[in-house]
Amino acid sequence: MFAAQDWKDYELIDTGGGEKLERWGNIVLRRPDPQIIWPLLKETGPWREADAHYHRSSSGGGSWEYKKQIPERWTISYNGLSFHIKPTSFKHTGLFPEQAVNWSWMIDKIHSAGRPIRVLNLFAYTGGASVACASAGAEVCHVDASKGVVTWAKENLQLSGLGERPVRFITDDVFKFVQREQRRGSKYDAIIMDPPSYGRGPNGETWKLETNLFPFVESCMDILTDKPLFFLINSYTTGLSASVLKNILSLSIARKYGGTISCGEIGLPITASKLSLPCGILGRWEA
Rank of each mutant, 00 (worst) to 15 (best):
E164G: 10
F230H: 02
C133M: 14
A136C: 10
G199Y: 02
K67A: 12
G185P: 02
D172H: 08
T211Q: 11
P195N: 06
W47H: 00
G60E: 13
C141P: 00
L268Y: 05
V28D: 07
V217D: 09
A287E: 14
K86Q: 15
D226T: 04
V244N: 04
T237V: 14
A242P: 03
A113H: 05
R31E: 03
T237Q: 11
Y236M: 10
I37N: 12
Q69I: 09
E164W: 03
S112A: 13
W152H: 09
A272K: 15
F96Y: 15
M193Y: 07
T15Y: 06
G201P: 06
P87W: 07
P71H: 08
I223G: 03
P71G: 14
A134E: 08
S57L: 10
Y10F: 15
W74L: 10
K256H: 10
Y10G: 04
K91R: 11
R184E: 15
I85F: 09
F177R: 05
T225F: 10
E19H: 04
S252V: 04
K147C: 01
E11S: 10
G239D: 03
R115C: 01
L95M: 13
T271C: 03
W285A: 04
G267A: 01
S250M: 09
T44D: 15
E265G: 09
V150A: 06
D6M: 01
C263I: 12
V149T: 12
I192W: 11
F231R: 02
E65W: 14
P215G: 01
G259V: 05
Q5R: 12
Y10V: 02
H84Q: 14
S104T: 15
S82T: 13
V244C: 09
H55I: 13
N121P: 02
A52G: 07
T44R: 11
A254N: 07
P97C: 08
P195T: 09
A113N: 10
N203D: 15
L40P: 04
M193P: 01
E65L: 13
C133G: 01
G80R: 01
R73H: 15
I107W: 04
K68I: 00
P71S: 08
L240P: 05
V140T: 06
K42A: 14
L282N: 12
D172K: 02
Q69L: 11
S250C: 03
G61S: 09
K86T: 05
I110E: 06
R48D: 08
L277A: 15
F230K: 05
Y66W: 08
E72Q: 13
A272T: 10
K147S: 14
L157T: 11
Y66H: 13
L213N: 01
V101E: 11
